[in-house]
Design a protein around this nucleic acid. Structure first.
Length: 595
RNA sequence: GGGCACGUAGCUCAGUCCGGAAAGAGCGUCGGACUUCUAAUCCGACGGUCGUGGGUUCAAAUCCCAUCGUGCCCGCCA
């Protein structure tokens, strides 16, 4: 409803400005501070003062007079407060908000008939997912959810690097070493924990093995890469045996978040179908192409990039960037827009790709990157190859364990007599534990650096998931107590919606809550435009504050509450439930029915 | 050395893109509230030269310039 109100205010203000012969290019629309009653304001009078030859408050007054609030649906009144114009919401604004928000899909925006591919995670299939890159699936999944909710047709892709030197090395190590060569046991009973040991021992061997043997190994690795390059089926199968196994394990880990994908797109796909060769041929034709030191490169200085981009090695093999160009052209053959979630260390590479795609004739306006800074340990970087780092599995296990302890601790002093059984405790431990980890990461701006510390990552207090989840549980508790099903649209249940009267919600707490609910679609719209899911997290926190104020001040089911007020408040609770459930689901945080 | 990002309360962060209403949360500290729909909650107090210095503007945490600190990047790696 907020979006409609804003559109209405903009139109009215623009008309008023035109009528008074003022410029209409900047309406100065803004959201007022909390202690102001209006839902929308304008500071346009400041800018008009000199032109009007009158002080801002007078200009504001003239503008307010020239807008007739009676002609507006969602605005009841226009007040001036000094130089500011304040637009106060009408009864219709509240009534329509209450009505639309009792639908369980509240907040979902209209279909935009635009497809978008969100590529995220894309971690090399070399071993267990560690916390250093855990930001990627968590942010990526939230961005995908957000775009979906905002009306886009979304596919989620994981780009599998199965053609690089790392994977060739892994394949060689896997084929060369035996279980008996390994000095350690797998840290966990899942395939990637088993196989990463070969990768690590292989890398160690290449670093300080006997010189002649290392040379032979390098030659073998080189031949695997040449095989892949020439589309040799045998090389592909050898590599696949490693890649597919490791990837299936990593997939298992990511499903715990859960982060799921529509497609795992392999790099080799673009070698096997010759798209990469085609890209190479076209790159050679570019004015920027040079053949230097026996390698083909692109000079991108004129495009603001100092370093040359090598796209064909002197041995004739392609590079990651070359294949990624073919990959991106394929994306735009199949989707209207493409979004990639990337670590900040890939920023330069992303710029090179974008610039080069443009040179190849792809319009890159619809290609956007979300960059996040890596999570490091206090003692330094995490590395799969060296085996330093905290596994995401361990973090999730620990989070669930701690959440379980919390539930059990609280069991004794519960007031509510709802008998949580073992399944409930386990369910809550999972929802809260994993929710807390995700919320902690998704609620911060991705560009901020994070140093991983256990205590901080597992802090359930603070402004964390459980705080917001608790509000959802409270909503469900009230609805269930009233004999309603929280998961179902209110309209489909045994409650007189027609008789529902938003006017009965007259306390400040009720009005504030309803105003906050009204903003959800606008928040989703803007967060989706900006690709910033943390805006949703900020919103959930504010929403929870508002709901708790309502909860404190407005009993719903108490005996002395008038029947009609009770119905109106129940509707408000149902609307709140859908609002918080949907906002949390965008963040990938589960909304518990009880906790 | 060059490029990019970040710097807001003791700590963790919103707000910065798009300048406007005496800077907002949470944690921590201190003091209060459970015969009432779940106290993982709520109420109150304390806490700030928005890194620093200039500039633009009626108005700057927000825009511009400079500077300091931290991180990332500058491979025929991915």
């Amino acid at each position: 409803m907020f979006l409609s109100l804003r559109a209405e205010v903009e139109a009215a203000l623009e008309a008023a400005l035109a009528e008074l012969e003022f410029p209409t290019d900047d309406l100065g629309i803004e959201e007022p501070p909390e202690d102001v009653e209006s839902v929308l304001a304008s500071s346009v009078a400041f800018r008009l003062a000199s032109e009007a030859g009158a002080p801002p408050p007078q200009v504001a007054g003239r503008l307010a007079e020239s807008i007739d609030a009676d002609e507006l649906t969602y605005v009841a009144e226009i007040q001036t407060q000094g130089p500011y114009l304040n637009f106060l919401p009408s009864d219709a604004y509240f009534a329509q908000t209450l009505e639309t928000a009792t639908d369980k899909s509240y907040g979902a925006l209209e279909d935009r008939e635009t497809s978008v591919v969100v590529e995220h995670t894309s971690a090399n299939p070399t071993g267990p997912v560690h916390v250093g890159r855990a930001r990627n699936p968590i942010i990526g999944d939230a961005v995908a959810n957000l775009l979906e909710f905002a009306g886009y047709d979304v596919d989620r892709h994981y780009y599998v690097n199965d053609a690089g030197r790392q994977i060739a090395t892994f394949t060689w190590a896997y084929e060369t070493f035996d279980e008996s060569d390994l000095e350690t046991e797998p840290e966990r009973d899942r395939i990637e924990y088993d196989l990463v040991r070969y990768y690590r021992i292989g890398n160690a061997f290449l670093e300080d093995g006997p010189e002649d043997e290392v040379e032979a190994a390098e030659a073998e690795i080189e031949s695997i890469m040449q095989g892949l390059e020439s589309g040799d089926e045998e090389a592909y199968e050898r590599v696949s045996e490693v890649v597919d196994q490791v990837l299936s394990g990593m997939k298992g880990c990511l499903e715990r978040l859960p982060a799921e994908f529509d497609e795992f797109v392999k790099e080799t796909r673009f070698m096997r179908n010759e798209a990469t060769d085609d890209v190479v041929e076209r790159l050679k034709e570019l004015d920027e192409a040079v053949y230097e030191d026996e390698a083909w490169q692109l000079e991108l200085e004129d495009h603001g990039l100092d370093n040359n981009l090598v796209f064909l090695r002197s041995d004739g093999t392609s590079l990651y960037a070359t294949r990624d160009l073919a990959h991106h052209e394929w994306k735009f053959d199949n989707y209207d827009r493409a979004v990639t979630i990337l670590g900040e260390d890939h920023k330069l590479q992303a710029k090179q790709i974008t610039t080069t795609l443009e040179l190849l004739g792809t319009d890159t306006d619809d290609l956007r990157q979300v960059l996040y800074s890596y999570v490091n340990l206090p003692e330094g970087k995490m590395s799969t190859r060296r085996g330093t780092g905290v596994d995401l599995d361990d973090l999730l296990d620990e989070a669930i364990d701690r959440a379980r302890e919390e539930v059990e601790d609280r069991l004794d002093d519960r007031i509510r007599d709802d008998d949580l059984d073992e399944d409930d405790i386990e369910r809550i431990a999972h929802q809260v534990g994993i929710g807390a980890v995700r919320y902690d990461i998704v609620s911060k701006q991705p560009t901020k650096a994070i140093t991983f510390e256990w205590e901080q990552a597992l802090d359930f207090e603070a402004q964390s998931a459980p705080y917001v989840q608790y509000v959802h549980a409270r909503c469900c508790g009230i609805l269930e107590e009233a004999g309603l099903d929280p998961e179902t649209d209110l309209a489909a249940q045994d409650i007189e919606l027609d008789a529902l009267d938003a006017d009965l919600l007259e306390t400040q707490a009720e009005r504030d809550l309803l105003e906050t609910i009204a903003r959800l679609p606008a928040v989703i719209d803007e967060a989706a435009d900006d690709l910033e899911p943390h805006q949703i997290a900020t919103y959930t926190r504010e929403f929870a504050d508002r709901f708790n104020a309502f909860y404190r001040e407005c009993p719903v089911l108490a005996d002395d509450v008038d029947t009609e007020v009770r119905a109106a408040r129940l509707a408000l609770v149902a609307a709140s439930k859908h609002t918080v459930a949907n906002a949390l689901s965008i963040l990938g945080v589960e909304p518990p029915r009880s906790m």
